[in-house]
Simulated assay, not measured.
Amino acid sequence: MRITSVETSVVALPFTMGGPHPLFAGRPWEKLEILLVRVETEDGLVGWGEAFGHAAIPATKAALDTIVAPLVLGRDARAIETLTRELMHATHLLGRNGAHLYAVSGVEIALWDLLGKRAGQPVWALLGGRERASLPAYASLLSYGNDLGLVARNTADARRVGYRHIKLHEVTREAVLVAKEAAPDAAIMLDVNCAWMPPVARDMAASLADDGLYWLEEPVWPPEDSHGLAGLRRHGIPLSAGENTAGMFGFKALVEAGAIDIAQPSVTKVGGIGEMLRVFRLCQAHGVEVVPHCPYFGPGFVATLHIAAALCERPLVEVLWLEMEANPFDPWVRARDGHVAVPKGPGLGCDPDPAILARYLAAPPVRTEAKVAA
């Protein structure tokens, strides 16, 4: 079934986060932006994907509209692996990580949505999974600039509404201790977003060694310094990384260096669902747990639900700790009592609400299409 159009659009959703909005890439981050990818085939069936993301949306959208979308027109939407490999090869001179890979990821997710709809099966079933009503989630707090009062309050609030795992985005041991006091029966994770060069990271890991962290995420700059990351293992804290890692071979470098206990591939960045499968197989062969990175708000988040439901032995889904004014993919992008529901419908199982899409549209959609001969 051939692809007749690819359409990109951006929705911007106002949100609150239990504190002042942070700066992101030099500007206030006050709205959640979703870069949606809509792929239609000649029989009128539509699949939805999401491409990364955040302040990179203009670059990713340009890559989609000008390069990736024209390459997929007229292609068989069912041949996902072949098409994705050829897209990656066609764009590899433009960078093996970044906007073009993100663009391919968004298209690839939409193709899986189409595949499931055509087969009448949810993606988790296509991946060989069993039906699960819901999955446990963890609250991923945003950064409060080391305001310990806000760290304590939001940690306590997250525990009160049912989260048993809570992740901080801070860079001090004091924040960890405050969070542990605020929610003593919760597992606390710390994500420092590649804050430290290896010598400082080793000192920080030593200071955190006895604090019972569930994991320490991306402690080393730059993130591709797998041996620098591996040097922290001796402190006994489980180490996680992978949201900035390029594809299965990037994870192969982390695994072979003995750098991680937990791999965190991101479906909207790594190349889509098929590349996630390859990362899972690699990690399973080497005894490394996979907990997908997914602080997203649309099809990327929903695709992660299907992946986690099918492939994770101990699923744990990342949910950003914030309150959206609305979301076109409600209710599937929200947690309740520390859990997220898994769609049972075919494909991703949740097309967006067109009224909410229209209400929060940030710019007119861009449609790339071609007439396909019969």
Rank of each mutant, 00 (worst) to 15 (best):
P365G: 01
T8A: 15
A103H: 06
P364N: 13
A209Q: 14
K61E: 11
M204L: 07
I356Q: 12
A152S: 15
L213E: 02
G228T: 11
S266C: 05
Q121W: 01
L13C: 11
S9C: 07
I188L: 10
V340I: 13
M248Q: 10
W112R: 04
I109F: 01
T368G: 12
L71Q: 03
P315M: 08
L311Q: 12
A56F: 09
P292Y: 03
A137E: 04
G120D: 13
M197Q: 04
D211E: 15
W29R: 14
L216P: 04
P352F: 01
R164W: 05
V290N: 05
P238C: 06
A355Q: 14
E318I: 14
G116E: 10
I57M: 13
Y360N: 07
L361C: 11
A62H: 11
H293R: 12
V176N: 11
R130D: 10
L93K: 13
L114Y: 10
V6H: 11
V220S: 06
V220A: 07
E131I: 13
G287W: 03
A55Q: 00
D65C: 14
A133M: 08
A374F: 01
R2W: 09
A257P: 04
I67E: 00
L254M: 09
F52R: 14
A79N: 15
K371S: 04
L83H: 08
A133K: 14
I237R: 07
E256T: 14
V200Y: 00
R173M: 05
F329Y: 15
I307R: 03
K371D: 10
L322M: 12
L94M: 14
Y163R: 01
L150S: 09
H89G: 00
N97W: 11
D43P: 03
I80S: 07
P299G: 05
D113K: 10
K61T: 03
R233G: 02
A187W: 14
H293C: 00
E108I: 09
K61Q: 11
R118Y: 02
P354W: 00
G120W: 08
G120H: 11
N244C: 08
E181V: 15
A310I: 05
K31V: 00
C194G: 14
G26T: 05
M189V: 04
L320E: 15
K180C: 12
H306D: 09
N146Q: 13
E275M: 14
A362M: 05
R202N: 13
G298N: 06
P315K: 08
A370Q: 15
G287H: 02
G228D: 08
P346L: 00
P20H: 11
R130T: 13
